[in-house]
């Protein structure tokens, strides 16, 4: 039996398309799904099937062409934009600020929120992702795997309700990809954050509790639930 979800994102009958008139491209149509905090989700599908667009809709950064998206917290429904402060992102290209050390990169969101113990909490998080010995290294001095761990720590340090990760292991070799995936899923689990991963990797997608698969040809959408334990 799964624990009672704290909050969830709900997409109701949404369609997404871009372009005008004859040049309109439909990514997906009439899609309904829910993302619960504390659970993990993978979005898979071929290039151009609309994975990133779905991610943008779920995070409230874009609005659908049709349908509605909202955030439900303790039965209170509010627009997705109200969730803005409680979501974090992880990118394929890591996107760390090159002039900042690992420690300062992780402390960044806390400093912006005006938290006094930003540096100490950043240190804790870097320790959690196994980089306590790399605190004062700049991104250039870190390997790809290490950079992505810093990015994971940075996304989770301000304890968001949901984490959206776009191809988080896409730039890593198999060994590093596996290690980073372990860190990502473990940390989300520990933090009670919902994790939504866009990926081409079957191995990574298999780690998620739910898998949303988008298919180009017929705008098909397949939702499945895996049997692995929830994070």
């Amino acid at each position: 039996m799964l624990s009672q979800p704290v909050s969830r994102i709900h997409l109701d009958n949404v369609s997404q398309s871009f372009g005008k008139n004859d040049n309109q491209v439909h990514l997906f149509s009439d899609l309904t799904l829910s993302i619960e905090q504390g659970r993990s989700y993978a979005i898979t599908g071929p290039s151009g099937s609309g994975k990133s667009s779905l991610l943008m809709l779920m995070s409230g950064l874009e609005v659908p062409s049709k349908g509605s998206c909202y955030y439900i917290n303790d039965e209170t429904t509010s627009p997705l934009q109200s969730l803005r402060n409680h979501i974090g992102f992880i990118f394929q290209q890591f996107h760390l600020l090159p002039e900042l050390t690992a420690l300062n990169n992780v402390a960044l969101p806390l400093k912006l929120r005006g938290q006094k113990d930003a540096i100490n909490r950043a240190k804790e998080w870097l320790k959690k992702v196994g980089l306590s010995h790399r605190l004062h290294h700049t991104p250039k001095q870190l390997s790809g795997g290490e950079q992505q761990r810093v990015a994971i720590a940075r996304a989770l340090v301000f304890e968001p309700n949901f984490i959206f990760a776009d191809e988080p292991t896409g730039n890593l070799d198999t060994k590093n990809a596996s290690d980073v995936a372990d860190t990502l899923f473990d940390c989300c689990k520990e933090n009670g954050a919902g994790l939504i991963v866009v990926t081409h990797s079957d191995e990574l997608a298999a780690r998620a509790q739910h898998n949303f698969s988008l298919k180009n040809a017929a705008n098909q959408f397949i939702s499945s639930t895996s049997e692995i334990s929830p994070c």
Partner: peptide, 16 residues
């Protein structure tokens, strides 16, 4: 531009 995008990825908006 990159800095602003990253800041927005922490849950902040353009006004920030």
């Amino acid at each position: 531009k990159k800095k602003n995008s990253i800041i927005m990825s922490f849950g902040f908006n353009k006004v920030t």
